[in-house]
Design a protein around this nucleic acid. Sequence first.
DNA 1: TCAGGTTATGTTAGCGCTGTCATAACCGGT
DNA 2: ACCGGTTATGACAGCGCTAACATAACCTGA
Lengths: 348, 348
Amino acid sequence: MSSSGKEKKMRAKTRPSRVKGDVTLDIVARVAGVSAITVSRAINKPEKLAPQTRERVKQAIAETGYVPNLLAGGLASRSSKLIAAIIPSIANLVYAETISLFSNRFREAGYQVILGDSGYPEVLEEELVRAILTRRPDGILLTGVDHSPVCRNLLLSARIPVVETWDLTPTPLDIVVGFDHVRIGREVAAFMIEKGYRSAGFVSADDARALTRQRSTQETLNKLGVTDIVTASVPVPSSMELGRLGTRQLLDKGFTGGAIFCSSDTLAQGVLAELQSRNIGVPGKIGIIGFGDQVFAAFTHPPLTTVRIDRKRIGREAVDALLARITEQPVKSNIIDVGFEIISRQTM
Amino acid sequence: MSSSGKEKKMRAKTRPSRVKGDVTLDIVARVAGVSAITVSRAINKPEKLAPQTRERVKQAIAETGYVPNLLAGGLASRSSKLIAAIIPSIANLVYAETISLFSNRFREAGYQVILGDSGYPEVLEEELVRAILTRRPDGILLTGVDHSPVCRNLLLSARIPVVETWDLTPTPLDIVVGFDHVRIGREVAAFMIEKGYRSAGFVSADDARALTRQRSTQETLNKLGVTDIVTASVPVPSSMELGRLGTRQLLDKGFTGGAIFCSSDTLAQGVLAELQSRNIGVPGKIGIIGFGDQVFAAFTHPPLTTVRIDRKRIGREAVDALLARITEQPVKSNIIDVGFEIISRQTM
DNA sequence: TCAGGTTATGTTAGCGCTGTCATAACCGGT
DNA sequence: ACCGGTTATGACAGCGCTAACATAACCTGA
């Protein structure tokens, strides 16, 4: 069958709207000989159409090269199919891995992820959140649990599911998926002692969570009688360069031996390079433990001892939780601890 | 002439639409005692309002906690203020750096960037492009210059500015910002010779552009009389692990000395680690040259000789070109070669 | 004084979709 | 024949904005 009832009742008001050659639903509908809503259904709920109709519409879509307009669709349906993710920095692989999984999973579920790169200072976060809410995302992922009051408010009144990640809190905005930085500090301290170190150094990025770990390690160390501690603080974002710089600071401050806890594997890699360039063998007098267990950690020379975080799991759990909220299914728990694990390789 | 819409069926149906507590323009307008369009202007073209009115509206906005809806705004204005960027992988720092600058600049210009991570195979690119066009971006950045015909078509009929990056072509879809992989190959070959190497190895990721560089280096080397060449190919994404693996392949294939050209600095870092773990000094019998001059390249031990690409410039030029197109200003050139530079450090 | 400009603000009509009915066509079972 | 229940499709009224024009208020100079 071909175009049967063509022009039934075209509206007489031909407005000059076809300035842009954009193909719209109406055009596809006309080509397929159905109504606009039927085309809409062919795309969004194909199971509601008769197979025959569905086919006809699909063909019309292909023929016309129709690309749906989700601005319009989102406006009408009050669902943008957009998920926002706010991370401190795109240029930090640690987050990239989580986000990569996060995006892919959401893509499979029919959502797109829009990334916001907040830089580390929280001030920006607020601005970013505001800008992003403008797109009416169906859900949002945040990094960290510290947000300005204005930011919290913004998020709350947006009435969308929120996942906070990379940290834990008893009072999440909605859902939190992370791990316990204080506990990490304690276990790292114990690990250092266990490995026989009696003095310690820290090379930490100026980042709230890194500092929490450092403080906790330090306190535990103190409790265990280790007080010979030297610290170096470097700005974000972490890099090998800053790792080397931090090492020099440590050395300048009189650090001669002990365990160095770095707030990221990248920093640790820099520490390693700096020590090697000074012919200081690792491990030995100096041991290094990184943080993150990034992809390269097992392949440095020597392989890096570090704290493994299951970053993919963070991504996975965040997706699941968000999706559950969006579809109004119950979430098992709104506080998800993905834990951590000290991976003992050769630098400590 | 106007006021033709006579049949205003406006029946006294009080719209129960305020189900969602969303603040809209109208509400702000009412609070400020102005019309909706005035609020719109206060946000988008404040210079068109009397300072006094502007203030009043701003206050009403703050009072009500209004967050504009860009789905609606974009639909009405046919401008989403969205820019799409498609890169092979978020989890690859090489691209992240360009994108980071790209996003930040666009943010300053009032745009948001939506990232698409295509994975390397082109098939996905098409799907991704389609999905992204659905959001009606005002511009799009692509990585590479090879696109399927369908994809090209999609892009072309979207009638939006397109920048292709990381490569050069005489026939860009619209604008291209990149560098010449063939020329890099030639210069790297010359550099190897100049450094005294008479045999070569390649550790290359299975990526079109990397392979182009390798081929060009190889051909040039051949022309210059160097035929003792061994190659190792590794999958994407590059990692230290694959660098080590590639090195082992090279060694297994009988590579005993010469210059190794790696398709990325990350790979080079792996090569370095593998050689160090075998106590093979670098440079010396074996030299290494990487690609990219990533942040860590200057800080490995020993510092890595590599090919520097001005990634930030790619980002900058891409933004400028896109912005020029969007505002319908002339672009200086639609083919922008950002060049490259061999950075001689200590591994070759 | 007034035509003619220049702001500052408002009115109207959509942008391209989808939610929500309404309608139509068909299905048995009685 | 009737009924109620499905299933498939359509009509219509917005979603929350902004472009484009209309209007009002206020200049300016001859």
